[in-house]
Amino acid sequence: MQPIISISNVSKTYATGFEALKSISLDIKRGEIFALLGPNGAGKTTLISIICGIVTASTGQVLADGHDIVRDYRAARSKIGLVPQELTTDAFETVFDTVSFSRGLFGKPRNPAHIEKVLRDLSLWDKRNNKIMTLSGGMKRRVLIAKALSHEPQILFLDEPTAGVDVELRRDMWNMVRDLRETGVTIILTTHYIEEAEEMADRIGVINGGELILVENKAELMRKLGKKEMLLHLDQPLQAVPASLAEFDLHLARDGHELIYVYDTQGERTGITTLLRGLADEGIRFRDIETRQSSLEDIFISLVKDRT
């Protein structure tokens, strides 16, 4: 199937000489939720801004649903909705008017029924006649999403959609994003909250220093790069790991009360059985065992750290 967004060798060097993007190539599949992860200044917003037409790429090409974003910008942009990172809204307009304005701006005829549906879906209908300046930060974020959805886009960019919003609203937004995906909308989100990507994304791209480090199916990424830890709560604290157990990746924590074993779940042998036997031979007794899968955050941090 043709990708809904195709990015080929896109780079961006600002007038100051700062190289924000270094030859990025990426395909976004139709109907997926794609999370773009990266630390501050990695180039996430620049990449999104290029695709949406806000920033001009220095080199490369972007196709949105087969339309070149420069040569065929009308067709390309009409497919795209953007929720920016900053809460940039008009202050004196009402919610209904500003969302209707966005629909017109994207070339769609007036459709109060659709605007009502969008506002109801985002729990904004009761606020439709309120001026935007009277709304809370979370509500303003919803208004930005409503504006982006007003023209029924096939592709939705969410740039840090839940930055600064409370837990309840974040959950609501996750549900909304899933519902949108059910209707066939492709969603590309950038986020600082890695749990957000872990919770929602089908695929994950990690960007750092303007380079796309990797793009991977989320489950595959966690399977390939994920490590597991086994935590043993010891009866008696240990001063050091016995020499007979040196072959295992062991380290002590909490003043020797905990012994942590890191192992690879994909390995032919995990070594758990041998380790437990070795502990018994050394007369080390333990009260409890727990295991922990490394999170996407751990993977992300190790990936970014490896590059710096």
Binding site: I54, R74, A76, L82, T88, T89, D90, L105, G107, K147
Partner: peptide
Amino acid sequence: FTGTIYELLSAPIS
């Protein structure tokens, strides 16, 4: 000034 120019620049408008 407010930043809402993003919408104008990303809209299918010449």
